[in-house]
């Protein structure tokens, strides 16, 4: 049997990788992918605890998180396309229309 800590190690590593990606990368799409990475690490924690405690709620939460992630990806990528049409770049350092 694999101890539950090993799943948590994997999840923590993926989450930190996602955080580093969000802060350091400047391509909007790669930032978005790093966010997906963080969402997945949270999902992994949910499933690990759900399986180890014999409680189904964790897996249902993961199901809902996946649906929300799909909606978020659709809307977010549409926003990225709209920004690209306007500014002809997806570099986050050059997109500052909300700054003043």
């Amino acid at each position: 049997m694999i101890p539950v800590e090993h799943y948590l190690f994997l999840s923590a590593f993926m989450f930190i990788t996602g955080v580093i990606g969000v802060v350091t990368r400047r391509n909007a799409i790669v930032v978005f992918m790093s966010i997906e990475l963080m969402l997945n690490s949270a999902n992994l924690t949910f499933v690990a605890f759900s399986s180890y405690l014999g409680n189904i709620t964790g897996q249902l939460v993961v199901f809902f998180v996946m649906a929300v992630a799909a909606a978020e990806a659709a809307v977010g990528l549409a926003i990225i396309i709209a920004i690209f049409r306007n500014k002809l770049t997806v570099n986050l350092d050059e997109i500052n229309i909300l700054k003043w």
Partner: peptide, 8 residues
């Protein structure tokens, strides 16, 4: 783990 490092 390797794939997530490659992503970033």
């Amino acid at each position: 783990v390797a794939a997530s490092i490659f992503v970033v």
